[in-house]
C-alpha cells in the first residue's frame, strides 16, 4: 500500500492512508489524550480530548474520527489544544460526583490519570452535584452513575463485541444517562449476559464488581481489542 506524507508537530512522516490521525500518532509514539476511545471499538469522537489542529481548517478536529490525508499538517501539542483538554477534564469532574479518595477505582482510574496529565489543580466550574442512582441490582456488578463520564465504551463493547446491546443512552445534556435495556434495573435486564466486558471497558469506577474494595480493582481494557483481533483471525 502506498504511503502518504504528513507533517505532525513539525516533523515529516510517511504513513498509511485510511488510518485515523489517532492511529497514526499512536504508532509514532506521539501522545494524544483520549477517554472515549478504546482500541477494538468504533470511535465516536465524543470526549473531545483528542482534538488536533490541522492546517487550513479553523476548527479543531477529533483525531480518533479524522482520517489522515496526503500533505496534512497536524499539530497535537499547541496551547489552544492544551487549553481545551484542561477545560474538558474540568467539566468531567464538575458534571458528576467524582470523589477519588473513596472510589473503588482510586489509583487505577483513567479519569484520575487524565487529571494528573493535564495538571488539574482546581476546577473552575461550579460542580453540578446531580443526584445519581447507584444501581446495585445486578448480582455481581454495580453501576454507579455518579462516576460515569458518558464515554459510552460500555455501550459499544456490549453491542459490538458481546452482541448483547444491554447498554444504551437515554436523555440529553445533563440529564443523559446510561441505561440497561429500556431503563430497567441492570439486575432485571433480559439482554445482559453478565460477561463483564463493560466492567473492563469502563475507564472510571462507574462499573465495578461487588466482590472487591478499593485497592483490589483490576481492569483489563486491552482485553477488548484482543478479543476483536482473535475473532478476525478465525474468520
Amino acid at each position: 500500500m502506498n504511503k502518504i506524507p504528513v507533517i505532525i508537530d513539525d516533523k515529516s512522516f510517511e504513513v498509511d492512508p485510511h488510518k485515523t490521525i489517532l492511529e497514526v500518532c499512536r504508532e509514532l509514539d506521539i501522545e494524544i489524550l483520549t477517554m472515549c476511545h478504546l482500541k477494538g471499538l468504533t470511535d465516536i469522537g465524543a470526549c473531545r480530548l483528542c482534538l488536533v489542529e490541522v492546517e487550513g481548517i479553523n476548527k479543531l478536529l477529533s483525531a480518533c474520527t479524522t482520517k489522515v490525508a496526503a500533505n496534512m499538517v497536524i499539530k497535537t501539542q499547541t496551547e489552544r489544544i492544551k487549553k481545551y483538554q484542561r477545560i474538558t477534564t474540568e467539566l468531567f469532574f464538575a458534571d458528576r460526583n467524582h470523589v477519588c479518595a473513596v472510589c473503588v477505582s482510586n489509583g487505577k482510574c483513567e479519569l484520575q490519570n487524565l487529571g494528573y496529565k493535564v495538571e488539574l489543580d482546581r476546577i473552575r466550574y461550579p460542580h453540578l452535584f446531580p443526584q445519581c442512582e447507584v444501581d446495585t441490582s445486578h448480582p455481581w456488578y454495580v453501576m454507579d452513575h455518579n462516576r460515569c463520564i458518558m464515554c459510552t465504551r460500555c455501550v459499544r463493547v456490549c453491542n459490538e463485541v458481546e452482541g448483547a446491546h444491554n447498554w444504551d443512552v437515554m436523555n440529553r445534556g445533563h440529564q443523559v444517562r446510561i441505561i440497561s435495556d429500556f431503563n430497567t434495573p441492570w439486575g432485571e435486564s433480559s439482554t445482559c449476559t453478565s460477561c463483564g466486558k463493560c466492567l473492563h471497558a469502563c475507564p472510571t469506577g462507574a462499573i465495578w464488581p461487588k466482590a472487591i474494595v478499593q485497592g483490589q480493582l483490576e481492569k483489563n481494557p486491552g482485553m477488548v481489542n484482543e478479543l476483536v483481533e482473535r475473532r478476525k483471525m478465525k474468520l
Binding site: 473513596v102 473503588v104 442512582e133 454495580v142 461487588k210 466482590a211 474494595v213 478499593q214
Partner: peptide
C-alpha cells in the same frame, strides 16, 4: 444508597 462494601473505604 452506597454499596455496603464501600464503607471500609
Amino acid at each position: 444508597g452506597r454499596m455496603y462494601t464501600e464503607m471500609p473505604t
